[in-house]
Amino acid sequence: MKISQSIKNFCSKTLSEGMDVHTMFHIVRRIIPDYDIYKQTGFPESFAIPNRDAADAIVRIIIERNMFLQFIELLITLREEGLMSKKINLPYLNEMIREIYNQGYIYDPANRIFVENPRIRKTLNWGTLREGDSYTLVFLGIDIINNTGIVKKYPKNMVEQTYTEFSFIVQNICEKRNGRLWNWEGDGGVVAFFLGKKYQDAVLSSMEILNDMFLYNRTICSLKEHLNFRISIHSGNLEYTENRNKLIQEEPLKVLQEMEKKYSAKNTICISLPVKMMLDGFIADQFSEFKKPANSKYFHYKLQWEQ
């Protein structure tokens, strides 16, 4: 994000007018633990640094280290929770949030971070995941069943058209809930959810895919048979990296692959226990335990109709 002069000024005034130098150091050391202003500014340690100079120096270092948004996120948290049980006055914070919004970022209170505004741009890391940092994400894996059989049986253009329509359905449904397609290989892929109610968003996306595919198969699909698929949803902690190959090796994604192989069934959603536990009751109630093979770690849902 480009840090404009006006945001820099607001940030500097927030610090210098809202707190003393000692409090500034205390706050900045939460994200830069070894921060030493004397080293940065060259002032002798016996010298009392004026508020405005200290604030300017802190703003400079957080911008240099590309931690500006992280710092504002910290200030928002401090405004809500206070510092060491005391309320903290942070003037101009709203003005900064507004400037950041104008640059295409919105604040996600669930995760307490700034993320890109999906109306302006959509990147794979929501504009906020940092290389090497750990995050809890929810993953939705989906793949077409009998891909090889379909590819052999139907003309190439018909298969391509059908698979494109399938990917559009998945992508549209997931992206409207802020999911990001991390991996797509023609007959399926992985969608990641990170923001807001990520567990519910992933599960409701999967249910909508199930319903839309039900209609698609009966109204639009050009194949002479239904396009069948299976969905798995699991959540877990991973170390974020831009390297896709490395990312796919992370533990939660390995579990997702195992779920797809062992526990997923045709036109069914399979979710793991950590996902089920985070759902609203009436949604969680729709999922049943696996009977064959008996496994209480995974639960499934399929569309059923009255007779």
Binding site: L204, M207, E208, N211, F214, L215, F282, I283, Q286
Partner: peptide, 9 residues
């Protein structure tokens, strides 16, 4: 069909 999803969202 989407009654559950609508109810939730």
């Amino acid at each position: 069909l989407n009654r559950l999803i609508i109810s939730a969202e």
